[in-house]
Simulated scan of single mutants.
Amino acid sequence: MAVSLASTASAQAASAPPAPSPQDRPRVTRLRLSAFARHRRTEIPLAPLTLLAGPSGCGKTSALRAYEALARLGGGARLDAVFPDPAACVPERARPDAQRRRGFRIGCTVDGPGGPVRLDVAVQAEPELRIVGERLSANGVVLLETALRDPGRRTVQAAWHTAGPAQVTRAPLPDDRLGTALLPLRVAGTTDGQRRVLAAAEQTVVALRSVFSCDPLPDRMRAPAPTGPGRLLGGCDNLADVLGRTRSECGRRHAQFVAAVREGCADPVEDVLAEPGAGGVTRALLDRGDGVRTGLARLGDGELRYLALALVLFTGPGVLEVDPAGEVPAALQTLTVLADGLDRGLDARQRAGLLALAARMCDRGHIRLVASVADASRAAGAEGVTVVHLEP
């Protein structure tokens, strides 16, 4: 599959740049789909704000699915939870080998303080789901490599760089977990080589874990939301509950959010309210400024998706339902939002407003956005937006 890239300069920062620099934060800068779904030898460069464009069926959704899968594996999830239908990830024309095995291969490059680190994973989908090979490397040095030696055992043989009296340490690892995510529990860090392995693994895991996959579902957003912890779900079902939290926690950010909502709604908006109701639920309302309050049930699908996506861009890991690396300070992490169909249901004004907001927020360095769009014609050349065209 061919990939072409169109990139423009970053948007002007809306405030003073945060410290430390965004370049110090681990971040995924390339996604590799060596053999995944309809992709073969596809490599996708990722900027702070990346839009995946192309005709229907070119693999935009599957690329986001592969990124999300790597993120979940980096967080320690089991393979069967990440790939409930692994056969759907195998390239359609992939033929089984002599042992009737078929699978897929995905990977990424993570940039950060330790320089670029490359992770590649080979997964066997049939006849049994298992990781059959994994490689973590940096600057041409293989830091971790695993291979399936005995198909009868549910382990892979792992070897990681030591650079001590023994150049390599070998040990079995489970075949249903990402070995890179397990290294901090297995490597002592007593030699320079071990410390190098740990640094690369931790940089990769930190970048992968801070991912929020988002696809607002308007039908679920219209109903009152049960009052809970105020952490936004991927479908934005509990948007009303989250609005109650964000409105009370930071008045300045809420005012900016209201201003963004005002730009995306047809009628006037003076405020966005969260009203507790009977039975432990919260209802979201738009204050029109003339005594009229409009419930979300009356809004169109485009207005609801715009409102939800704007809220996601204004919040962070503490509000979104993600599991970032708790042992790493928030200032050293960057949240990545994955949004399939970013422009779905939006009119031209809403698309332009949302892209401008996304470019402004991504330029600050605390958030990155990777999204698929049906039409990138208006985004091409927009300040702060990088468009990657996928072709069948």
Rank of each mutant, 00 (worst) to 15 (best):
L79W: 09
R293G: 03
P96L: 00
A325T: 15
P329F: 14
T282P: 00
R186A: 14
E68K: 11
R102D: 00
R170Y: 08
G75D: 04
S62L: 07
A66D: 05
R154P: 12
Y67F: 12
R231I: 04
A371H: 07
A47M: 06
R305D: 11
G381C: 09
R262I: 11
A181N: 08
E249Q: 14
A359E: 02
A225M: 05
A380I: 12
T334S: 09
I106W: 00
L70Q: 04
A88Y: 11
V110G: 01
S4F: 11
A376T: 12
R25E: 12
G365H: 03
A138S: 10
D175H: 01
T386R: 02
R349S: 13
E275Q: 07
G179R: 02
M221K: 10
A274V: 08
T282F: 01
T294H: 13
V242F: 05
P84Y: 12
V206N: 00
A240F: 04
D215R: 13
Q99C: 08
V272W: 05
Q124L: 01
R154M: 08
P84S: 13
R231Y: 04
R78C: 08
D150K: 09
R298F: 10
T109F: 04
V370N: 12
E128Y: 14
H366C: 05
A53H: 02
G264D: 08
F314Y: 15
E391S: 09
G230M: 01
L335W: 06
W160G: 03
A284N: 09
R101F: 11
A66K: 05
R102N: 02
G300I: 02
E202M: 13
C265V: 09
Y67L: 10
R351T: 12
A166R: 14
S34A: 13
T282Y: 00
G59I: 02
R101S: 06
G318Y: 13
V123R: 01
V281H: 14
A274H: 05
R262F: 10
R298C: 13
V373C: 15
R247K: 07
V28K: 00
A259E: 12
A274Y: 03
F36A: 06
S34E: 15
A260T: 04
P127Y: 04
L136C: 00
E92T: 13
I44L: 10
L64S: 03
E303R: 05
A240I: 03
G295R: 04
I44D: 06
L119T: 09
S137F: 00
T315W: 15
G59K: 03
V385I: 02
G76Q: 07
